[in-house]
Design a protein around this nucleic acid. Structure first.
Lengths: 341, 341
DNA sequence: CTGAAAGCGCTAACAT
DNA sequence: ATGTTAGCGCTTTCAG
C-alpha cells in the first residue's frame, strides 16, 4: 500500500515505509523507551523522507496530555502585555510547554468566551490577567482541575495562585512621593477605567493617601481611544486651562504622561519646578524623551516569568498543591519630573 | 453511575444526567441537526449544571476539523504585528475560526520549530510573515495541504497566497519624494537587518533610486537592541557629528525617527528646512509629537484583514484554488518633516 | 528491544 | 427527532 491522495501522513505511513511497527515508530519519534540504533535510524530516515508531521490531536487524546498553556490577557497593543508574554516565553521555552494567547479586550463576556474556548483544548495550565472575572469564568477555572495563575494584580481573591503587584499600594506610594516632594495641587489624568480594574485601584490608592494628608485631587479627566501621546497632550492642555494652579499631574500610564511632558516643554513650563509629572508602567520604550518621566515599574517581565514557573512546577505533580501568592514590589523611578521642590 | 473523581466531564456525563443519548447531546451542543426544544432544553440544563466544557481534542480528531488558524510572526513587541493581529481577529471573529500565534524572533530555525509545532495541531490555515523561509519550512507549508498566506511583503516567490506591500517600492517612493523635495545630502539610519528582510528591501529600493538620480547615501548606521527612541536620538547625534552637511535622514522605523526628531528640535534645528526626516510604518501611537514625522503607512490592519479573508474563503472549499496575490499601495504621509525646501 | 490490543472522547454515517 | 456503530491517529498497557 502506498499513499495516493493528499490526506496528511500518519504514523502508519511511516511504519510501512520503514518496515517497523507503528508502536516503535511512535517510540522513536517521542524519544521514549529503548529502541535499537539501527531501528531508530530507519524510522527517522523514513519520517524525514516522507515529511511526516505528527498529529498532536490524536496524541493528546490518547495520552491525555497537552503541552499548551492558555494565556488570557486584555490586549496586545498595550506595551505591557507583550512584555508579560516575553517573560512567560522565556521560562516555558526551556520546557516542552507552549503558550497560547487569548485576547479579551477588557470585556468580561469575551473573557468568558475565550476561556471556554481555550479550556476546551484541555491546556496544562492557565495564566490569566486580573482577579476580576465573571462567576461563570471563575467556576470554569476551578472546575478545570489544572493550575491557574492570575497575574498583574494581587488586590482581591484569587481562584488559585497569583503573581503581581498591589496597584492600590502603587497609587499610595506615588501619592506619598509626590507629597513628600512638596507638591500640593494635584490632578489625575487617565483612561476611562470602568473595566480596567488595575487603573482604578491605582487611582483609589492615590486619592486615599492624598485624602489622609488632607489633600484633595483638584482636577481629573479620563479618555478612551485614540493615540495616547496626542491624548496626553490635549488633556494636559485642557486641565491646565481649567485649573491653572496645578503643580503636579499623575498620569495613569507613561504614554499619556509623555504626551503631557512634550506639551509642557513646548509651553516653556519648568519641569519639575513649576510642574511635576509622573506616569505608570516603566515603559522602556520611552527612554529618549527630552526629560525622563517619573514612573513606577509594573514588573511585567518578572510577573510573566514567575507565573510560568508556577505553572511548570504544578503541571508536573498530580495532586493540587497550596496556592502560591507572589507579591512583587515596584520601585519608583524619579527621573527628571518628580523632584523635591 | 455518578462522577466521583476529578476527571474532566465528558459527553457521557451529560448524557447520563439528562437521560439523552450522547449523540443527541453532541448535536445540541453543536447546534447541528434537528433536536426537539424539550430535549434541547434538558441537555443544555444538564450541561450547564455540571459545568461541562467539551473536549475539542476529541472533537477535532473525530471530525477532522480544527477551527484554528496558525499565525506566525517574528515579534510582538514591535507595534506592527499587534496591529496585523487586530486585523486578523476582526475578520476571523465573525467565523468560528481562532487565531493562534507563534513567535519566531526573526530566527529561521525558530520559525521552523514553531511551524512544525503548529502544523502538528492540524490548523485550518497558516498566516506567516515574510517570504523568506528555510527549505524545510517551505516544504512543510506545501505539504500541509491547507491554505497558506504569506504576509507583509510581496517581493519574492510565495508558497501559496500573499498579501502585502512592496518594501522595495516603498524605499523607492520615499527616495523619489525626498529628491523631489530638493534634499541632496541624505543619510539612512536603521536596525541591523541581516534577518529583517523587509527593512533590507526598503533600504535597497531607497539606495537604488537615489543612485539612479546620481545621489549617493552620505552616511548610514545600524543599531540593535535598546530603546528605539533613545537609539534614534544617539544615532542622529552621531551621524551629524560625522557628516555635518546632511540635509535629510531616512529612518527605518518611526520610533527611531521620533527619537531623532526630538533630538533635532532640542538642538534648535529648523525642520524641515535645514533638515528633513522620514520614518516608516505610520505608527499612530506617535501622533502627538511636537512635529508630525513623515512616514509611510505599512497597511498593517488591512494586511491582516485580507489575509484572514483568504483563509476563510479557502478553508471552506475542498479543492485548492489558484493562489491570490494582493499588493497594497502604501501612501506617504508628509507630515511636518518632509516639505519642498 | 519490539509488537498487539484496547481505548482516549468525540462525530460521521447510517439506522430507526 | 433520536439512537447505534465504527472509527479519527495516536499512546498506554501488557506480552513477548
Amino acid at each position: 500500500m502506498t499513499k495516493h491522495d493528499n490526506r496528511p501522513l500518519t504514523l502508519r505511513d511511516v511504519s510501512e515505509a520503514s518496515g517497523v511497527s507503528e508502536m516503535t515508530v511512535s517510540r522513536v519519534l517521542r524519544n521514549r523507551g529503548d529502541v535499537s540504533d539501527a531501528t531508530r535510524a530507519r524510522v527517522l530516515e523514513a519520517a524525514k523522507t516522507l515529511g511526516y508531521v505528527p498529529n498532536k490531536i490524536a496524541g493528546a487524546l490518547a495520552s491525555q496530555r497537552v503541552n499548551l498553556v492558555a494565556v488570557i490577557i486584555p490586549s496586545m497593543s498595550n506595551m505591557v502585555f507583550p512584555e508579560v508574554m516575553t517573560g512567560i516565553s522565556q521560562i516555558l521555552d526551556e520546557t516542552g510547554l507552549q503558550p497560547v494567547v487569548g485576547i479579551t479586550g477588557y470585556m468580561p463576556e469575551k473573557e468568558e468566551q475565550v476561556l471556554y474556548e481555550m479550556l476546551s483544548w484541555r491546556p496544562s495550565g492557565v495564566i490569566i490577567a486580573g482577579l476580576e472575572h465573571s462567576d461563570a469564568s471563575r467556576a470554569m477555572l476551578r472546575a478545570a482541575g489544572i493550575p491557574v495563575v492570575e497575574i498583574m494584580d494581587v488586590d482581591g481573591t484569587p481562584v488559585d495562585s497569583v503573581v503581581g503587584i498591589s496597584h492600590r499600594r502603587a497609587g499610595q506610594q506615588m501619592a506619598q512621593a509626590i507629597l513628600k516632594a512638596g507638591y500640593e495641587h494635584i490632578a489625575f489624568l487617565g483612561t476611562k477605567m470602568l473595566l480596567d480594574h488595575r487603573a482604578r485601584k491605582r487611582f483609589e490608592g492615590f486619592t486615599e493617601t492624598l485624602a489622609k494628608a488632607g489633600v484633595e485631587i483638584e482636577d481629573s479627566d479620563f479618555y478612551s481611544g485614540g493615540s495616547a501621546l496626542a491624548k496626553g497632550r490635549e488633556m494636559t492642555r485642557d486641565v491646565l486651562n481649567r485649573s491653572p494652579d496645578l503643580d503636579f499631574i499623575y498620569y495613569s500610564n507613561d504614554l499619556i504622561g509623555a504626551g503631557g511632558l512634550l506639551y509642557l516643554i513646548e509651553q516653556g513650563v519648568d519641569i519639575p519646578k513649576e510642574m511635576g509629572l509622573a506616569g505608570f508602567n516603566g515603559v522602556n520604550l520611552l527612554r529618549g524623551l527630552p526629560q525622563e518621566l517619573a514612573t513606577m515599574d509594573s514588573c511585567r517581565l518578572e510577573i510573566g516569568r514567575r507565573a510560568a514557573e508556577i505553572i511548570i512546577e504544578r503541571s508536573g505533580s498530580e495532586t493540587p498543591q497550596d496556592p502560591k501568592r507572589i507579591v512583587l514590589e515596584p520601585k519608583i523611578t524619579y527621573g527628571d519630573t518628580l523632584r523635591v521642590r
